[in-house]
Amino acid sequence: MKDKAQSETLLSVDNLSIGFSQYIGGLKRRTIQVIVDLNASIGHGEVVAVVGASGSGKSLLAHSILGILPGNAIMSGRMAYGGEELTAKRQAALRGKEIAFIPQSVNFLDPLLRVGKQARIGFDRKTAAARQRELFLRFGLKEKDGDLFPFELSGGMLRRTLFATCVREGVKLIIADEPTPGIHPEALNEVLTQLRQLADSGAGVMLITHDIMSALKIADRVVVIKDGRTVEVAEASAFEGQGEKLAAEYTRNLWRALPENDFDLMFAGDGGNGHVA
């Protein structure tokens, strides 16, 4: 998968910065800078994981690629998709078609609409039913599952339904925002397998997550973000041992802090801090 991955850049984000303009009494305004210097790229057939602490700007990266930032956001930097600049106009034309977004929560499904119907939204009315059945088949859902409401589905089935509503044929770039937290291991593996398959069929996948272990199962490269900055872009294979192959100290700490690795050993020598009788 690697040789194909590096061949051609599908999406590149260079020097992205995002700030929010806020009113602080009267007509006085201030700008809060949340993303300072973010860089990422994805090739065809590649899974790129974006990891970092909550509040580090992971989701904002996704929203800026899709062009769905709130109105008071001020953005600068350069984004290119398929070799051309990704303008607001192109974003509007591409999202939901070539660029798919899988949102964080299954709460994005309509609780009062049968899931089959939800997957038909946006299709031509004559062919919608047939295409929905195809999609369900592709994501391992049964035909009669389409008659169910979201509350009748298990966590894993809900995720697959979300995939069916988001990922359409002709999709080239998939942005998945935290698709894994709070689901049991079996459903988790399903989601990961699904994303890997999409990449293997030629699409680029951006997997935004704080679950490094899961991300490493399918990712080719990992973009590590801290406080709105890219601290490192590492090959997935560099995450091993004590993290000797990782360039940034923050990435090494992130790796070592996993319960599978050193966990809290790095805080063991914290002296007075944490010692409370």
């Binding site: 602490a53 937290p181 992130l254 802090a257 966990f263 914290d270 944490g274 409370v276 009788a277």
Partner: peptide, 25 residues
Amino acid sequence: DEMTTMLDAITQAKIWHVFKKLCAA
């Protein structure tokens, strides 16, 4: 109950380290 599920690994390790100590004491 899933106290640190939504936290990054470093914050998770830090919080458990302190919490464990406090509860043991």
